[in-house]
Structure formats: structure tokens, C-alpha cells
């Protein structure tokens, strides 16, 4: 889910909230029946408009636009932020160096997986909340040493920095503890 969709959700929630509060205040004011509000509702001005010849065209067109916009808004909530290729330093007018980033991060995940206590690891590059992120997920044993894993993650992130040489790339390793315990080799 992109930052733009989150911003749209917040903006829409704010606007609808204001509109709903205004409707509530107006309804309460109507109950108090001050002089400036009609005693009963007269919908004839609205039905006069809806009986115009141009009205079906407007509703049809506006309806189609709303359906498309709503579906686009809904689709924006589906996570699809995967990044294909990244441009490497050294690119200029003569040529561009591009690398498929996710296989590189997958290779980094394989290296992280070789750390004692890490059962499995996967990785991909995503665009997330305005950042280009090497996102790794690792399943660790319940008895794993977190210091070792954090150290291995730092090493792996340093290698990624060296290989991809992108100043704007960030790294995020999300650890999950395996549900079923597997005994780890002990060193005496």
C-alpha cells in the first residue's frame, strides 16, 4: 500500500468526518426549528432537476467516473510495491547500469539463512512509505541468539550496500520466531 493511498484514506476520512458532523449539527438545528430552516422538506427543486433531459447523461457519466475512481482507489490498497530493476552508480548518457534488485536481496537472504538460529529467510526490494527498501523476512528458532542474528543482519546489509551502491536504499529485516521448536547445536 503506497503512501499516496494512505494519504487519500486520511483525507477522505477527514472530509467525510467534517460532512457528517455538519449534517448532524444541521439535523439538530432543524429539530430546534429556527426561523431560517423550513418546517418541512420540499424535494420538488431536486426532482425538477432530475426530470431534465440532460440529467441521465450527467448521472451516467458521473456514475462511470465514480465506479472507475472507486475501483482504482480499492486497487490501491492491494500491496504491489515490488521493484524490478534499480539503476546503479556509474550510469550516464553513454549507458545505464541496471540490476534486478530482488535476486540480489534473495542472495543476501540466503546468506542470512546460514546464520545459526535462522531457519529460513526470504528477501525482495519494495517501495514502501516513500523509501526504497530491501525487505527481508527471516524465521528464527525460539532459542536463537538475537545478538548473533543482529550482527549477521548488519554484515548482510553492509554487503548489500557495497553491491548495490544506492544511497537511497534502506534495509528492513522482519524476524519471526518459528512455532515449532527445533533444537540448536550447543557449543560447550
Amino acid at each position: 500500500m503506497s503512501r499516496r493511498v494512505i494519504t487519500l484514506d486520511r483525507f477522505a476520512s477527514f472530509l467525510v468526518g467534517l460532512a457528517v458532523i455538519a449534517a448532524g449539527v444541521l439535523a439538530f438545528a432543524w429539530w430546534l426549528t429556527p426561523g431560517w430552516l423550513p418546517r418541512s422538506l420540499d424535494t420538488s427543486p431536486v426532482t425538477d432537476v432530475t426530470s431534465q433531459k440532460w440529467w441521465p447523461w450527467v448521472t451516467g457519466l458521473a456514475g462511470a467516473v465514480l465506479v472507475l475512481a472507486g475501483l482504482r482507489w480499492l486497487a490501491g490498497h492491494v500491496p504491489h510495491s515490488r521493484v524490478g530493476e534499480v539503476t546503479l552508480p556509474g550510469s550516464d548518457d553513454d549507458g545505464r547500469l541496471r540490476a534486478t534488485a530482488t535476486p540480489v536481496v534473495k542472495a543476501a537472504a540466503d546468506v542470512l539463512q546460514s546464520t545459526p538460529g535462522v531457519r529460513s529467510a526470504t528477501g525482495r526490494v519494495v517501495r514502501e512509505r516513500g523509501q526504497l527498501v530491501a525487505r527481508l523476512g527471516a524465521t528464527i528458532e525460539a532459542g536463537a541468539d538475537l545478538h548473533d542474528i543482529a550482527f549477521a543482519a548488519d554484515q548482510m546489509a553492509a554487503d548489500l550496500a557495497r553491491v548495490l551502491e544506492r544511497d537511497d536504499l534502506r534495509c528492513l529485516v522482519q524476524l519471526k520466531v518459528a512455532t515449532r521448536t527445533r533444537s540448536l547445536p550447543r557449543v560447550s
Binding site: 458521473a62 456514475g63 465514480l66 465506479v67 475512481a69 472507486g70 490498497h77
Partner: peptide
């Protein structure tokens, strides 16, 4: 909330297309 509002926008559009 965003998902709900998006569904409501689609529903409103369906109403307009239906009337047309």
C-alpha cells in the same frame, strides 16, 4: 475506513449508471 469509502464511491457510481 478508506476501503469502506472506496466501496461507497463505487456503489454511488453504480446508482448513477443504473439511473442513466
Amino acid at each position: 475506513v478508506g476501503l469502506t469509502l472506496a466501496i461507497m464511491v463505487v456503489a454511488l457510481g453504480v446508482v448513477g449508471v443504473h439511473d442513466a
